[in-house]
């Protein structure tokens, strides 16, 4: 790059060009959607089988699978931190949003111990919706936005259905809000990387 003879018009064009180059610098977070998507999906299906097919009393042990999600998130978060070359305000906002949602999941766990688990899935699905919708809007990725809207609809439906059906609704919600958008997001970043 030259450092001389810059006209005001060239300066403005340069500023615009550089801002555009950093605008899309939000790191690929699809791996977190896929990790949590599959962990929660597997936990839902496992709990449903344990409860309704095997008739196991402690069917909720299926949720022990979230330990894989936590360990995986910590590991991937450290790895991502090592390779991230730029920190954007949008990236930071998304990170803080998901940390808050994660803390809310745990807070709800203790709240439901007190008030009962009958409608637990409704609230968990609402949290999927908020996380996916806001992330989708911030990174301008419509599959996540649509996934979030879908999860909101499913959350309302779940309030009118029984616990066993809610387990399957939760699996479906995670499929449309995390797993499918997660794969589409990964494809989008791969395409961008190739161009």
């Amino acid at each position: 790059m030259q450092t001389e003879n810059l006209s005001p018009k060239e300066s403005i064009d340069l500023i615009q060009g550089m801002i555009n180059k950093t605008k899309n610098a939000v790191a690929d977070s699809s791996v977190f959607f896929l990790l949590w998507g599959w962990v929660v999906f597997a936990a839902c299906i496992l709990q449903y089988i344990l409860k309704n097919v095997v008739h196991y009393q402690y069917h909720y042990y299926a949720w022990g699978l979230i330990i894989i999600g936590i360990a995986g998130s910590v590991y991937l978060g450290i790895q991502k931190g090592k390779i991230t070359k730029v920190k954007t305000y949008i990236g930071e906002s998304i990170e803080q949003l998901w940390i808050s949602i994660g803390i809310t999941y745990f807070a709800l766990y203790f709240i439901f111990i007190k008030i009962g688990y009958q409608n637990a899935f409704t609230f968990y699905i609402l949290l999927y919706a908020i996380g996916c919708f806001v992330t989708g809007r911030l990174i301008k990725f419509s599959p996540l936005v649509l996934g979030g809207i879908g999860a909101w609809i499913l959350a309302v439906c779940s309030a009118y259905l029984d616990y066993d059906t809610n387990i399957l609704i939760s699996a479906f919600a995670i499929l449309i809000s995390y797993i499918i958008p997660g794969y589409l997001l990964r494809m989008k970043y791969k395409k961008t990387a190739l161009n």
């Binding site: 790059m1 001389e4 300066s11 950093t22 730029v86 954007t88 930071e92």
Partner: peptide, 23 residues
């Protein structure tokens, strides 16, 4: 600021929280 490379660097840094030299 009125230098192409310095202006480019500042334009990028103004729109992000922080950036690595390599970026």
């Amino acid at each position: 600021l009125h230098s192409q490379l310095r202006l480019a660097v500042m334009s990028m840094l103004i729109s992000v929280k922080e950036a690595e030299f390599i970026f």
